[in-house]
Write a protein that binds this DNA or RNA. Sequence first.
DNA 1: CGCCAGTTTGAACGCTTTCAACGGCAGTGG
DNA 2: CCACTGCCGTTGAAAGCGTTCAAACTGGCG
Lengths: 253, 253
Amino acid sequence: MKNITETRHIIQKSSCLYCCLKSRCLAEGLDLNELKPFCDAIIHTRSYQRGQHIFYLGDSFRNLYIIKSGSVKIYLSTENDGAEQINEFVFPGGIAGLEAIGNGRYLSSAVALETTTVCILPYSRFSALCSKLPHLQEQFLQLVSNKIASANRLLLLINQRTARERLAAFLLDYCSRMNIFSTPYQEINLSMSRYDIANYLGLTAETVSRQFTRLDKEGILKVDKHYISILDMKRLSLIAKSTDSYPNTVTIH
Amino acid sequence: MKNITETRHIIQKSSCLYCCLKSRCLAEGLDLNELKPFCDAIIHTRSYQRGQHIFYLGDSFRNLYIIKSGSVKIYLSTENDGAEQINEFVFPGGIAGLEAIGNGRYLSSAVALETTTVCILPYSRFSALCSKLPHLQEQFLQLVSNKIASANRLLLLINQRTARERLAAFLLDYCSRMNIFSTPYQEINLSMSRYDIANYLGLTAETVSRQFTRLDKEGILKVDKHYISILDMKRLSLIAKSTDSYPNTVTIH
DNA sequence: CGCCAGTTTGAACGCTTTCAACGGCAGTGG
DNA sequence: CCACTGCCGTTGAAAGCGTTCAAACTGGCG
């Protein structure tokens, strides 16, 4: 038995060591001595199919989930009138479940938008590990803090911008999250529906569709279903009125 | 000299000990042994007049500010077009500056809405203290996490609700933050302008004014400038479609 | 082949915004 | 003391952006 568990640990350890995401997830900046206990804290990875839920609003909080591949949408729904609100799209390197830390239960639902693999991080273990690794603790706190800043920027986008501006900003944000290497010509493969984009941006699917069409006709985008090509990055940025005036010195998503 | 510093420490210590807010701020739940170093970490308190800024967007991050009395608005402004977005109103017990932890600089501005006193919490000291007091660390993390949940709820409010519903929800939220003791008949003294409420809710001042007028005519509110009396809490709650379905087991603002 | 969900497009509607005017109130200065 | 100014809040009317409703189209899939 011991050998088996040993083997399991070794596999997990190497899975973190050789994970191409390790420089973009919570493990970022951990040295080798720190990476091992971090890997040990991760029970295992798991896969979800499109439409499968990772957790539901109201479930008791146990784990954080680091998205390894695929994408996830975090959303809020109300019992009264069934209103839904997408709060965030999480991409590889991002974490789902952070809102639940301050509460015993998940305060949102998370569902896979496509085939998605996650690292399951039991919070009790992670929390214990943090108290031993101040560096990890601080990094995690920064990550959570950044979420607040992101939410604030989103609020400005929604309250102060037109549909056209919101969509432009959304696409640019999507770009910067997906493409690590900035290239002049950007290709996007949207993992979410028009409805989801609309809901996230406080619009309707029809409006989003119309704005896509318009940006296409203007030669700024080439829109083909979920495949979007940005033909004129400069004009798109102009429309988005990019507000990223204070670049993050430490950017953890 | 030693006596003087000793005295200073005692004063600070007692200021936390006898602070009527201590059960509603970060110091909540700290035992006496923990409270002393916490008090020591607080340099001093400071007062701001209405309109005075506590920090500006872009300032280098040094301190967190616990609001002791008064109220503060946290807002984002853009360089491009001067657009402004109020992200939060902070009341006694609340903390300003949390968005800055993940960045070297403040990512929002904070300004006093009325005469306001704060406890200045140098982050470097606070951070060091946290690594010694896991309980404080965890509590702080929960607080930051709750901010994300709050932002998510606000997003739903703004994206899915009408002006009338938003204002109703705003008033109820204001009540629950200000009045610890829930009474059937609620009186509010708003510390912010119509413009501020409108901006926070993604509306215009005119719309907010009209909704106030309507709620007044309907007998739900009595509106007199900044003094609002809630005459019919039941109907107001109905309008707000209160979504507080999952009560916070640990509520830290 | 037919069904269905997602997307696009059109047309009409409507909530909120925009523009404008007015009144109240505090601060200022003659 | 009063006129002047600016800020805030209210109210009215008109305009507009996005929504709502409706229909057609597309592609995937049993």
